[in-house]
Design a protein around this nucleic acid. Structure first.
Lengths: 227, 227
DNA sequence: GAGTGGTCTAGACCACTAT
DNA sequence: TAGTGGTCTAGACCACTCC
């Protein structure tokens, strides 16, 4: 019973055991297919998967070699707060603190490539787990995308409305640390200056910006990724 | 000329255009193969890729459906500090601040599953970009893995030695925010309490722990991921 | 039990690139 | 130009899971 996952595992074992050390060219697909007694396509499937994971580098003609720097890629499942909290067996709720049309700071319009004199929809929300503040959300929303009677974001979270309604095609995401201040410090009940973890995210629909989101987490929060 | 990437693109377009809205079951592989005029395996390749990216959910018998929550996966290329800094055209250097065998705090041994009365190698390093502090590294290293004449970590960074020497099979990674204090505050020249971004990482070789690393970034640093 | 995706094969041709 | 990986095909059988 030899499947492509068995072959992937065996090749990975040889890489880790240093049978095939970093930088070394490994046997070609045809040779491995003969060794394992399978079709070349099966070997190809296994090696392609290992290359996508960053263990191998493949090039036509020159062959497949072991990557110099092993596994340097991690994946993050971007949490949907409601799911994350409910998965912990806690009750999710949110409160809309503020929402209005106003002129965004220059940093925001620059980042999104919008005209600086155009008002945007500002939303400030706190997400609660069992009634305790879990994260503070500050969001700038491109008003050009909103339907005429604006959705009631105090009943449906802006994130869920966006996900259900708009097709987004690209985005980026960054982590940073920031000192608590103003309303954020107040929400979490910490003194100004406390260190908080911020996730910043922009999303786009084609070349049209949708939203810029800053999610500030409760003190001590860790964002965990698997390697 | 229709290849699997064309099919992936077309299916993704239909998902984004809401031709196939979230939750809906899409046509089976056979049907799509006929529509596009290709073999079923080609359609399978395209749909498998979209499922790995989180756009589709596939199950035998019940078929393929559009994911309710689109793209919720981001990948981080774990930076090798020297490469990251040199890629910005800046000069990399590091200074070993401290290294000695000592008893780790209980939190460390618990996390790594080691005996609490066993000393570990402690390494404290600052990484410099153009002479300015870029990150502070605090590392606990399992001494059972070290060769008898301990490598000279003031000449070769511990990270690079580990990567070259040991085969690591698993690990995890977390981001958190922390207030600067003690040596870290001193290194960055900030007042105690300043918010700093910390990346914490543990690595394993089979079931043997290798190292626990805390990388504290310079004030204002952002870790960027692509979605 | 039946329908769907998951995988394998043997062979073929193509695309890229080192020499 | 030649060698390697990348992809496609037509057909087959298997594995899972819903009914």
């Amino acid at each position: 019973m030899t499947g492509w996952e068995d072959i992937r595992a065996e090749v990975l074992r040889r890489i880790r055991a240093r049978d095939w050390p970093p930088g070394q060219v490994i046997p070609g697909e045809e040779a491995l297919a003969q060794e394992f007694g399978v079709a070349r396509a099966t070997v190809n499937r296994a090696l392609t998967a290992l290359a996508e994971a960053g263990f191998l580098e493949r090039r036509r003609k020159s062959g497949t070699r072991v990557a110099e720097t092993p596994v340097r890629r991690a994946t993050l499942d971007i949490p949907i707060l409601r799911h994350e909290i409910e998965a912990q067996g806690r009750a999710y709720a949110f409160r809309l603190l503020d929402h209005r049309l106003m002129l965004p700071p220059l940093a925001v319009t620059t980042r999104l490539g919008l005209a600086p004199d155009q008002p945007m929809l500002w939303l400030e929300t706190v997400h609660l787990a069992d009634g305790h503040p879990h994260a503070h959300e500050a969001r700038w929303l491109n008003p050009a995308l909103l339907p005429d009677p604006c959705p009631d974001f105090s009943a449906l979270s802006a994130n869920e409305w966006l996900v259900r309604t708009l097709a987004f095609t690209a985005g980026d995401l960054a982590f940073l640390a920031e000192a608590a201040e103003g309303r954020v410090a107040e929400v979490f009940g910490v003194t100004a200056g406390a260190a908080l973890l911020v996730m910043e995210r922009t999303t786009w629909s084609g070349d049209q910006p949708i939203t810029l989101l800053r999610l500030t987490h409760a003190p001590g929060h860790r964002v965990q990724m698997m390697v």
